[in-house]
Write a protein that binds this DNA or RNA. Sequence first.
DNA 1: TAGATTGTTAATCGATTAACAATC
DNA 2: TAGATTGTTAATCGATTAACAATC
Lengths: 213, 213
Amino acid sequence: MRWSKISDAVVRRLPVYLRVLEIASREEGKISLSSQELGERAGVASALVRKDLAWFGEFGKQGVGYRISYLQEELRRILNLDREVRVGLIGVGSLGHALARYNIARSLDNEAYRTRLVALFDNDAAKWGEHVDHLEILPMDSLEDKVQELGLEMIIVTVPAQYAQAVANRIVKSGIRAILNFAPTKLVVPPEVRVSNSDVSLELQRLAYYLKV
Amino acid sequence: MRWSKISDAVVRRLPVYLRVLEIASREEGKISLSSQELGERAGVASALVRKDLAWFGEFGKQGVGYRISYLQEELRRILNLDREVRVGLIGVGSLGHALARYNIARSLDNEAYRTRLVALFDNDAAKWGEHVDHLEILPMDSLEDKVQELGLEMIIVTVPAQYAQAVANRIVKSGIRAILNFAPTKLVVPPEVRVSNSDVSLELQRLAYYLKV
DNA sequence: TAGATTGTTAATCGATTAACAATC
DNA sequence: TAGATTGTTAATCGATTAACAATC
C-alpha cells in the first residue's frame, strides 16, 4: 500500500468517504456502513467504494460492512490526518483573509479536522502585525524561517496571478511539497511537489457551457 | 456539435484554452498558435488539444495552427461567453464576501470576462442594504423575483453546510440550472441542473495524502 | 515546392462496473 | 443456518495518445 500506483482519482475520493463516515458516526446507533450506503452518501458506486478501499487493506466484514470508527481511523492514517498537518497561507487579500477565517473556524469547531492554519504571510508591510482572528500576518521574508520553525507542510497561495509563480518558486525552495493554489495561473513546479488548483473563474466559465441547452 | 455526448473532461479544458489564448493575444506579433504551443501553455498534450477542438468544428489551418482571435471568438461562443452571463451569490459571510469582491474586481479589469456578479443575497436581516463594493445585499426572500428581474442564470452558494441543501432546493425551483457550491456538502439536484463543487477542506485533506512519501 | 501542422482514425491506457466465490 | 456483503477478477467503458494522410 501507499504505492505510487494508487491513482489520483482514488485519492480524491478518500476525503469524501471520510466525511461521510464522520457524519454517520454522529448518528444514533450507527455502528457499521455497507459499501452500498457509504457509496450512496458519497455519490459513488458501491463496487468502486470497495475497490478504492481494497487498495489499502481489508477493512470490512462480509455480511456486515465497514465499522465506522475503525474505517475512520484507517482513512485518517492513510491520508496522514492521524496527526496535525500545519498549513501556511501567502497573500492576505480579501480571498486570503476569507480562507484564513474559514480554515481557523473549521479547526476550532471540529477537533477531528487535522489540517491547521498556523501562519499567514504577506508582502505588504502595511499588513504586518495585523491579525486574522488570533493569527498574525508575517512578512513574506520570514517564510523560510517559519517553514522550519513551525514545521509547515502545506501552503495556500492567494496572491495575484502575476506573483504566483515567483511565490511558488520560493515555496518549493523552502522545502514545501504541497500547494493549494487559488491564483488563476498554472504553476510550474518540480514533480515531487503536488499542486491542487482551485480557480473560481474557470469553474464559472465551465458552468456557462451548460446554460444554453 | 453541442451534443450531450461531449464529455465533461473536454468542457473542463475549454476555459483553460481560452485563458491561454487571452494571454497570447496580448503578446506582440502573435497571430496564431499551434496545438503544440497551445497545449504546452495549457498543460495538455497537443493531440488532445486538436481532438478537443475538433468536437466543435474545424478551427485551424494545416501548416499554420489556430488564429488566436478567431479561436477565442469560437471558444467564447461555444462556452456561451459571447454574451453576459449574470450570476448571483447567496450567503455573504466572509467567504461569500471575498468571492463577491474577487468576482466584481475580475469583471471590472477584464472586459472579456463575461460572467458578471449582479446580485447578493443573505438570510440575515442585519446585512440587508449593506454593500459589497457597489452591490447591495438583498433579502433571501427576494431571490425568486430577482432571478426573473435580473435574468440570473448561475448562483454561487456560500452558505453554511447545514443550510446548503435547502438553499439549493430554492435555487432549483427558481429556474436556475447552474450552481457553484462552496458549502462542504453534496447537493442533491435534478439532472438538468449542473453543480460544480469547490471544497477547500477536501482539497487540503487530499493534498495531505502526498505528504509522507 | 518543402516544411509544418491540422483533423481523424486506430491503438493504448486507465478507470469504472458487473459478477461472484468466499465468508461473516 | 440463511442472508448479506465483502474483496477480487473479468468485462466494459471512456479518455488519452500515437500515427499519418491531407493540405495549407
